[in-house]
């Protein structure tokens, strides 16, 4: 059945990436998703008691074997360069340090979410989270 109220987001594409969504930073400040800067994430993580920001470098991007709508992105995470692969919709946006929102298919991201977006490429360093006291 068609989605209600004209919403046409594919499943598993969260609503907070739609342009104009209101995001609350750790200090209580409210910003639109498209206005977020690298510093907003860094400062929020500094305030956070349990989350820390890790640098995740894109090592490989390939199409999913199960669906053309998905891509598999392999990251090298943190100082230990742990290898982590995630399967995401091609329009799923990641925040690249010093650059902003990027996805495997920025045209689709802009079309579906109206979120200004650049092309995610191998070598890009994305913001990711881990637990502070993970030992």
């Amino acid at each position: 059945p068609p989605p209600p109220s004209g919403a046409a987001l594919p499943p598993s594409l969260p609503p907070y990436f739609v342009k104009g969504s209101i995001i609350q930073l750790a200090n209580g400040e409210l910003k639109r998703v498209e206005d977020l800067k690298t510093e907003d994430f860094i400062q929020s993580a500094e305030i956070s008691s349990d989350l820390k920001i890790d640098s995740s470098t894109v090592e490989r991007i390939e199409g999913s074997r199960t669906s053309p709508d998905f891509a598999v992105v392999q990251f090298s995470v943190g100082e230990h360069r742990s290898q982590v692969s995630v399967e995401v919709l091609v329009e799923y946006p990641f925040f690249v340090f010093g650059q902003g929102w990027s996805s495997c298919c920025p045209d689709r991201t802009t079309q579906l979410l109206e979120l200004p977006c650049t092309k995610l490429s191998v070598g890009d360093v994305c913001i990711s989270l881990t637990l502070k006291n993970l030992k």
Binding site: D40, S82, V84, V86, F95
Partner: peptide, 19 residues
């Protein structure tokens, strides 16, 4: 208008501990 926490926008990439 819904307000979303900042950390919901960031993928949680927990590296597997190898040590």
């Amino acid at each position: 208008v819904p307000v979303f926490p900042w950390h919901s926008l960031v993928p949680f990439l927990a590296p597997t501990q190898s040590d």
